[in-house]
């Protein structure tokens, strides 16, 4: 167990190094903005990965929490002139509170019932964004959200946003990696395997489930708040069911067996449509084809494919040396 944690740190350091040099290898600002969205999506995906892949609780309503983050930020900064960062904190706290209130009854449900309950939750939030016109601006959304600033200085450039959001994404990743390898992580995996067995071993099953649900909702709200500050405009379209499903696709295509799956999934699913723009009208077809191919040929996701590849190379290595 300790060894795997160490190797995770190794990869994390290498990954951090890669993240910090990439902007200098890119000749174009456009790619930096793509990577900014990768970082935003990664924060949500890592949180969802903890909930779905480690604790075994499905959520089809994470776009709702993402939306709560974005809308809290938008409303507080435009209508109430709340200072930036304070709004982000309130957004995260509000999403956590709602997740706690909602999670306490719903997480007692299992399997399909939980999926449907979270689906309903997501749809209700989407309806609220659409219909609570006085506050959310209704379907036409909210314009003029201020950008982020640090120590009173506005962040103007995409490069600054890139480093800021990636710092948070990497921090989230570090927390998630530690959490998975900790006592909490083992408890989560136990209740993923069998809730009855976990309860028999003295694990507070519903307590852990609610906590992890709250954590992943808070991360989604953090990302939502960043999104609102970066794009400066929001409307309900981005916070519907399709985004919830996209998030699930990210963690499944990336690989459900590790937190790194969420990382790879968010990188691939956010940037792939951009690379495919060159194919003009066929981009959607190729995108779908790639997703289907991954699901058919790499049932354990990209990270699972990499693991199998590594094992094969490892076997060959030992065979040669023998």
């Amino acid at each position: 167990m300790k060894k795997t944690l160490k190797s995770d740190y190794g990869i994390l350091i290498a990954f951090t190094a890669l993240v910090s040099v990439v902007p200098f290898m890119l000749a174009n600002k456009y790619y930096i903005s793509v990577l900014i969205f990768v970082a935003i999506n990664m924060i949500v995906a890592v949180g969802l990965n903890l909930l779905v892949c480690h604790a075994g609780q499905i959520s089809l309503g994470h776009a709702g929490f993402y939306g709560i983050g974005a809308y809290t930020t938008a409303v507080l900064t435009t209508a109430h002139h709340c200072p930036v960062w304070v709004d982000t904190l309130i957004a995260v706290a509000l999403a956590a509170l709602i997740a706690w209130i909602m999670g306490t009854p719903t997480l007692k449900l299992k399997g399909h019932y939980l999926a449907v309950a979270t689906l309903g939750l997501g749809i209700i939030m989407h309806i609220v964004f659409n219909e609570w016109e006085k506050v959310t601006g209704g379907p036409s959304g909210i314009v003029g959200i201020p950008g982020l600033s640090i120590f009173g200085r506005g962040i103007g450039s995409d490069l600054a946003y890139y480093y800021l959001f990636w710092s948070f994404a990497l921090l989230t990743l570090l927390v998630a990696l530690n959490l998975v390898k900790s006592r909490v992580g083992r408890a989560m995996r136990a209740l993923h395997g069998s809730e009855v067995a976990a309860a028999a071993m003295g694990i507070n099953v519903s307590g852990y489930k609610v906590k992890i649900f709250v954590l992943s909702a808070a991360l989604a709200a953090l990302a939502g708040s960043f999104y609102a500050h970066y794009v400066t405009f929001i409307s309900p379209t981005g916070f519907g069911l399709s985004f919830s499903i996209l998030l699930l696709t990210m963690i499944i295509v990336g690989g459900a067996e590790s937190v790194w799956g969420a990382v790879i999934g968010s990188v691939v699913l956010t940037s792939l449509p951009e690379f495919l723009r060159g194919f003009k009208d066929y981009d959607v077809v190729i995108y779908g084809f790639i997703l289907v191919a991954v699901v058919i040929f790499l049932p354990a996701g990209i990270i699972g494919g990499l693991r199998i590849l590594k094992e094969r190379i490892g076997r060959r290595g030992t065979a040669e040396s023998a």
Partner: peptide, 14 residues
């Protein structure tokens, strides 16, 4: 989709 519109705009502009 608004996110995709932002990325498309960044591509065309930059």
């Amino acid at each position: 989709d608004e996110t995709k519109a932002v990325m498309a705009a960044k591509k065309l502009l930059n």
